[in-house]
Write a protein that binds this DNA or RNA. Structure first.
Lengths: 187, 187
DNA sequence: ATCGGTGATGTCAGTCAATGACATCACTGG
DNA sequence: CCAGTGATGTCATTGACTGACATCACCGAT
């Protein structure tokens, strides 16, 4: 396929993460990322819309997965039950291998305003998708929006906790714990 | 003060809004904005951090105002009562004159991803500030975060409604109505 | 009224993100 | 072995943003 080695996008992702972690986002140029990945800057922009997007490559996949889990929930499930299924489905994306990457990624994002902006809009998009999924299940608009918002909040909080947790704690446990906390809060 | 006319920042704001509305955000260059305002592009960047920020100039002011209103609430007010005071205080910023500007501004923002990102981070910052304000009132962290989030949501929804509402509806009424809806929802 | 300081602006040069147009190479199927 | 396809390289260009330095208006002190 490629002119040389395969998986240029993957190499670009790794190169970007390494350089962002090492020199910071602002201190890294696209040309440097491309060099390290063995391609040109032009190729970088063929794989990623901009310099930020390289850190959010998996997000569409995750979103699709959550929406599918939402749709796959039993027809008689309550809105919150369906959302819970979608949230729990994220566990399949974050195994122990991804944890180290996730940690470094989170560190870079929180320290870079431009990247925090991008993350916020990704979360907003995710919320919209889940809301739409609930609407297709016949959920009332108000309830759908609120349930989706809550689900994304649970995912966000859980993800942060998982990153900060010891290495032997799987994300599934954290998600369950967060959902339990939510239940006690609203009880 | 200025080399020529005063209030260069104000002229830049108006010029930017006019051009964004006319040619779109992407179709407008900073040089064009500066030209219309009678200054150079370099001066634009002395007043605004970047091309996006020119549309969010008043936000720090609004945020400060809300935080002050929050702090000024009676010591025995509940967290939600204090947040309500902060939300209602925004009415002083959006008179009828600002309405037309707000409408055009909203139209540009919703149609430009880059600007939506910036708006999201502004709202996130506002939420953080309100949370901090509540913490200083001795509110428990969980409650503070939730109350702040709710308050910002009310403001956001109200603002959208106000823009869509007929010209004779003041924003204060919309804010009250939204708060009332919230009360019935949580009842 | 003159002088010097201060702050805002202009000028200039430069870096870097991002995009369009076109050439080129690797791989595929016939 | 050849033509087609897709990914990549090359080149040129635009435009956002920054640093360094000069310049001008204004203000207070002399």
């Amino acid at each position: 396929m490629g002119r040389w080695e395969p998986d240029a996008a993957g190499r670009l992702r790794e190169a970007a993460m390494a350089l962002y972690a090492e020199r910071g986002y602002d201190g890294t140029t696209v040309a440097e990322i491309a060099d390290r990945a063995g391609v040109t800057a032009r190729t970088f922009f063929r794989h990623f819309a901009d310099k930020r997007e390289v850190l959010f490559a998996g997000s569409e996949q995750l979103e699709r997965h959550m929406v599918e889990a939402l749709a796959a929930a039993p027809a008689d499930a309550t809105p919150m039950e369906a959302v819970t299924a979608a949230v729990l489905a994220t566990a399949e994306f974050f195994d122990d291998i991804r944890r180290d990457y996730s940690r470094r990624r989170a560190a870079v994002i929180t320290s870079t305003p431009e990247l925090r902006e991008r993350e916020l809009i990704k979360m907003a998009t995710l919320t919209t998708s889940l809301t739409d999924g609930l609407l297709e299940r016949g959920v009332a608009p108000d309830v759908a929006a609120l349930a989706a918002e809550t689900g994304v909040a649970v995912f966000r909080v859980s993800f942060e906790r998982w990153i900060a947790a010891p290495d032997d704690v799987p994300i599934a446990d954290v998600l369950q714990a967060t959902l339990k906390t939510l239940a006690t809060l609203t009880a």
